[in-house]
Nucleic acid binder design. Structure first.
Lengths: 257, 257
DNA sequence: TAGCGCCGAGCGAGCGCTCGCTTTTTAAAC
DNA sequence: GTTTAAAAAGCGAGCGCTCGCTCGGCGCTA
């Protein structure tokens, strides 16, 4: 269950982060399969898990281009190469498919957030860890986060409440961190909830409008740098702070095509 | 065409702003009617304009709850009280309805942005005007902006490109303002495009997650205050700046229910 | 040959949209 | 002011189609 190398370092690079999360994903698909074993008619675990993963991937792919409602099960069948009949041996219904996909993402988020530093040295370091962890997680699982954001209104009541709870929970992480920082005299005094509510959309923009940043050749680490600099400038008492990462890079990390 | 009272003041209150934009909306619906006169089978302008407005409102209402695709024309018929047959005397097709609604919003945005101060005293005042104008406009027309954001992926190519162009154009306003401010020595030196790209989601959050702020009793003016304070803290060279509005208010402007 | 997994034509429901008909409005004739 | 016929606007059952989903038969492996 654990990622393997103990508590994640705040200054960890993205590629290392991605490697670890990718390892998690197979486990999570297997867990989903175990959880729904009674609904899935395919008995061989290896085949079932692999096909489930493909179904999830393709669903996210199609839905994020045209919307989940607009995706017909026939579309999904063609894109996965699994016939209509066989598909329904894995998913039971389109609604249940949605549910499984949401569950997959929630499991991943929970796994990663469990790695948060338990004994924070100071609020600033924790804030940086939170920002990078959120950003990197949403980068590795961008299709899921985009999907979860854009399709919320189509969820049933329970799923909608869970999504809402997730949003508020992640704001609470930031609000708590801000309160600590204010108590430590590091951050300016501001309404911590409202300030946390301002930080959230800055993180979400990364997975909602990736095309915008890709077009400008801004990668995830560069975006993280800019974000941390911007937020710390707004929060810190002393404005002139050292750079957010050990080896500061220019804003455009990738060469233009 | 013009709003009537000349150039809008940067420190204008929301209620005054709303009054002016509401006056615009009737004109805009009339313009849409004139534009599509050949497609609309109803001759009496008064009736047609009023019903078109109702159709647009209900479409936004239903779509923002369940999605435009998921809204059936029968739903719309029931909610507007207009029969299926009569409805198609106004809208020609569901796709054309979408097109008319998008056109309505674009016209409104163009009208309001045309009011931007043409001779900006300094970049800071302009920035404040831009922030408040965006915020207040998206507040008065929240359903349209929410719709436009969430349904973009369902648009045809032309409409998608227009939406994208709108997004980039509004970022350009901010980037230009930031460049001016840096040249004036008011703002810290930063990549103006990337910084503008960070400002945009802060404005969008207001119309995308209104429930979050309503639940916390944060009104649009209070959000504007917090936003301006946060952004100026991040941008200005001198951190200790006077308040953003002539009469600063506490963050929670409305009494809890 | 038993059974697991796969297949795709076909089902009822609901979609966007139409069209023959009714109701309401308008305005000229008295 | 009343009558009346043409014009305008409204109506909703029904059309063709696609949707989510099923089910009886098929092939492959053990």
């Amino acid at each position: 269950m654990a990622i393997g190398v103990g508590v994640m370092q705040p200054t960890i690079g993205y590629s290392e982060f991605k490697r670890q999360v990718d390892a998690l994903r197979a486990d999570i698909c297997r867990e989903i399969y175990q959880q729904n074993k009674d609904r899935i008619r395919v008995k061989k675990e290896e085949v079932a898990v692999a096909r489930l993963a493909a179904i999830f991937d393709q669903t996210l792919e199609i839905s994020n281009r045209r919307g989940f409602q607009a995706m017909s099960v026939r579309d999904l069948s063609e894109h996965t190469g699994i016939s209509m009949g066989a598909l329904y041996a894995y998913i039971e219904s389109k609604d249940k498919l949605l549910e499984m996909i949401l569950c997959m993402g929630r499991l991943a988020v929970a796994r990663v957030m469990a790695l948060a530093p338990t004994e924070p040295a100071d609020a600033r370091a924790l804030l940086r860890w939170l920002l990078r962890a959120h950003l990197y997680l949403t980068e590795t699982m961008q299709p899921w986060f985009y999907f979860s954001y854009m399709e919320t209104k189509h969820f049933d009541r329970q799923a909608r409440e869970r999504a809402l709870e997730g949003e508020l929970a992640s704001e609470r992480y930031f609000a708590d961190c801000l309160r600590t920082g204010m108590a430590q005299g590091l951050f300016q005094e501001r309404d911590p909830e409202l300030t946390a509510a301002l930080i959230k959309p800055l993180l979400q923009d990364w997975y909602l409008k990736r095309w915008k940043y890709r077009r400008r050749n801004v990668g995830v680490e560069a975006y993280g740098d800019a974000l941390i600099e911007f937020i710390e400038a707004a929060l810190l008492r002393q404005p002139a702070a050292p750079s957010a990462r050990p080896t500061p890079k220019p804003l455009r990390t990738q060469a233009p095509p």
